[in-house]
Design a protein around this nucleic acid. Structure first.
Lengths: 262, 262
DNA sequence: CAACTTCATTGCGTATTGTGCAATGGCAGC
DNA sequence: GCTGCCATTGCACAATACGCAATGAAGTTG
């Protein structure tokens, strides 16, 4: 079912990665060139793809516009932006903002470290993050109401990415309890061996943790201990963002677990 | 032809604007609910839309990810980002970066003025800008090789948006000549009566103008003359970005018109 | 607590729609 | 000017997506 739509989606995907000639498009889909042409023409009329001068197709501005519209309507992004950028300047490391959106945690903002842009982190706005093998994921999990947390974890199949990955439910629960008590989380290369993070929770006006901010660095640049020295700044930033969202006390003590509310 | 793809595109659009119930989706397309359901399921499997808890559909993270991928591959965005943010801080106004992409000029970055976010500008990343009724549009046009400029303008039907809009070809040509000589452009409320801009060209390594940076303010906040006082800073920023792209002289004098090259 | 309403979901037969083929047109290179 | 390459279009056919109607789930009201 929905074969033509699937094909269109496939072409959108490919065109985002690199320019796509008509012949390539037809080959990729395994259809006749005329079919590929018609699909691309339809997508072009919606500005989802665009023809380059060379006759190849690339992702169009219509899609980018839609995506920005959706990102812009996320209440969190706008008030957080300035704080995240300040945090980046103060620490010098890459800063992420991740939000629980439906069943997945996705990056909704990212401030690159200007100094080390030779080393590209695999993160990208819009991409889903592992909920059990990332500092932001564990942070959000740690503060989620139990039922919600169980719902998210029930979908999960644990996979070992590196030596430090938490791969069983009980160990993860213990880690989450530690995080909840301490008020912030660490990613000690749990997804990519050389990527370190610290993350702190962000609360909405009801006190519910809905997002997390993190500072990321690769091992070559900073050790985990060096990153940890930035935790006070990170907590302050997270609290300021929570404050902007209407959470009452912009103080540094992370009590009030949000489990009781709703 | 390509009816089902059109329908899918329509649903993507709507879901980006506001959450869409299945019934609504079917009504909008004028099809049976079962049809709308199948389209949405297909889109959901590609993470182009996402089901909320309430059973409505919103734009999914898959699309946002693709869009960021495409934006990230634009060479201009990354090196320009820091300069644009610095310019925003120094001037206090909203800063835009627009690029000629195919036949249209689209915003590829935007730095909001944090102070006045009550007033939302209509601009948005990914959105196409009028090429004859905006400072960035006129700037890019002014420095384009003649044949390229003619090609772009041949598609255009002039429309009067405000009292100051240039609505005939000759008047626009005169304005472009002025801009080319002076090295920067002004938008005196030519698209929206209360929106003022100044813009400066950005060159790639071949000396070709491919983009423009602009400072925007609404009349309530700054007069056009006040904006103009920021022109030296703007020119400096644009030149720095050009320099990062490989354009040889980061000096302030905007000679060398790029018409002779290629 | 049962009957009713509302909404999502699925199986199925049919006709619309999208497909492949082959022919046409445009363009560049020899 | 001929030849090969690629995009594009008309057409006939069959696959595909459609609407219908029945089922199921979930919440509401008497």
């Amino acid at each position: 079912m929905a074969q033509s739509i699937r094909r269109a989606i496939d072409l959108i995907r490919r065109s985002a990665e690199h320019p796509l000639s008509l012949t390539e498009a037809a080959d990729v889909l395994g259809v006749h060139k005329s079919t590929a042409l018609r699909i691309l023409q339809t997508l072009e009329s919606a500005r989802f793809v665009r023809r380059t001068g060379a006759g190849t197709y690339v992702l169009g501005s219509g899609l980018i516009e839609l995506s920005e519209l959706a990102l812009g309507s996320m209440d969190l992004r706008q008030p957080a932006a300035a704080h995240l950028r300040a945090l980046q300047r103060e620490t010098g490391h890459t800063v992420h903002l991740a939000q629980l959106t439906g069943d997945e945690i996705i990056y909704i903002d990212k401030v690159d470290s200007p100094a080390f842009d030779a080393v590209k982190l695999p993160s990208r706005i819009g991409r889903a993050v592992s909920i059990y093998a990332s500092a932001v994921g564990k942070t959000i999990l740690a503060y989620l109401p139990r039922e919600e947390r169980d719902r998210l974890l029930s979908h999960v199949v644990f996979e070992r990415f590196t030596a430090t990955t938490f791969t069983d439910h009980d160990a993860l629960e213990a880690e989450l309890a530690r995080i909840h008590e301490r008020g912030w989380a660490v990613d000690n290369g749990e997804h990519d061996a050389y990527v370190m993070c610290v993350a702190a929770p962000i609360r909405d006006s009801r006190g519910q943790v809905i997002a997390a901010a993190s500072i990321t660095a690769i091992e070559v640049i900073a050790s985990l201990d060096q990153l940890k020295s930035n935790v006070p700044l990170l907590l302050e930033t997270a609290n300021q963002i929570s404050y902007e969202l209407g959470y009452p006390q912009p103080s540094a003590n992370p009590d009030g677990d949000g489990r009781s509310t709703t």
